[in-house]
Simulated assay, not measured.
Amino acid sequence: MNSVDPSDAARLDGTLDRANSDVVLIVDDVPDNLSVLHDALDESGYTVLIATSGEAALMRAMQALPDVILLDAMMPGMDGFEVARRLKAAPQTTHIPIIFMTGLTETEYLVAALESGGVDYVTKPIKPKEVLARMGVHLAGARERRQTRNALDAFGYATITVRAADGCLMWQTPLARDLLERYCGTQAPNTPPEVLGWLQACLQTMARGDEPAKLSLERGPKRLTFRLHQQIGDSDAGGDWLIVMREVSDTAVIEAMSLSFKLTAREAEVLYWVVKGKTNKDIGDILGSSPMTVKKHLERVFVKLGVETRTAAAGMAMSRIRQLHPQFEG
């Protein structure tokens, strides 16, 4: 198995065998502690990385993205609590489970370890079997999350993970990042307010035993839908939630209406928004026209469809759309 020091970072990049071995980063400034843990983990089949300071730990974690971190609480310079806070604040590393190693058993220190981002702790002197057992629990959850993410990513889904307790966007696929920037103007670790509000409403709905609704954000004929996929990790404080996003474009629907009813491109757009239930003022705002111009377009649409009311026009258009595009959401 691999044992790698931070000085070998350049050589290591891209060479970790994640398919056959979980990667563990041990952070401790005492060589004897590192030696005991290294040997036990290496013999158990883990790929072992080491760091001897808080600064080196941050660099190593960002470069290698280990599956779990064993973190000494008390180190000179930057202590383990600060290291954990920084790791949890960074979108790239916030998902990594941190197990604290501490000789301080007073309640205030153990609470500080958990509040700074640790999921568990072991007390010194270190007992390798106990460490392995604790790691196994947290790695199982991390492995499940990674497999789910990889599967969704492989099929081209845009997905994000949001921590319900504080609304932090913990993980996202590249496609999800682009969509959130385009539709919401936000970047990780910030979850868009409308998405966070929807998630909280979903959790309340499910607590009542009801099915959560989807969220849809419209941008012209395109819309971005959000669906709650599953809860991952611990359920404390609401847990972490995997959300699947899908962008749908109705441009083809507008083109189909134009061809079916022999409408101009602008007339087809006006009819599309009538089907969506928009008023002339709303449509004018969307298309950059005055309500009077929209009214004139709509009058020509009535003539071409042979109807006299908005309701009749919308009904005829919806019937034709459903024939050509059954997935259309009116």
Rank of each mutant, 00 (worst) to 15 (best):
G239S: 11
R134S: 03
W198K: 03
Q231V: 00
P76W: 01
E43D: 07
R223V: 02
L203I: 08
G233I: 02
L87E: 08
M206P: 03
T107V: 03
L41M: 08
F155G: 07
F155A: 02
P6V: 11
R182T: 11
V119A: 04
V68A: 09
A165I: 07
G141Y: 06
S290E: 08
A113I: 14
F100H: 03
F81N: 08
R146F: 08
I321P: 00
Y183C: 11
D240Y: 06
P128L: 02
T161H: 03
G284N: 01
T173R: 00
Q92V: 08
R85D: 02
E299M: 05
V162Q: 09
Q200F: 05
R322D: 15
L305Y: 13
E43K: 10
P125Q: 12
M78D: 07
V119G: 12
V48A: 01
R149T: 15
K124S: 07
A317T: 13
T159L: 11
V119R: 06
Q63S: 15
Q92T: 13
A133R: 09
A56F: 04
G197K: 15
T311I: 11
P97V: 07
A158D: 06
D166S: 14
A265H: 08
D72K: 04
K222D: 14
I26R: 03
V244G: 00
T191K: 11
D282P: 04
V23S: 09
A56G: 01
G156L: 09
L169R: 13
L196M: 11
R246I: 02
E181N: 14
A237P: 02
N190G: 05
P66Y: 10
T123L: 09
S258Y: 06
P212M: 07
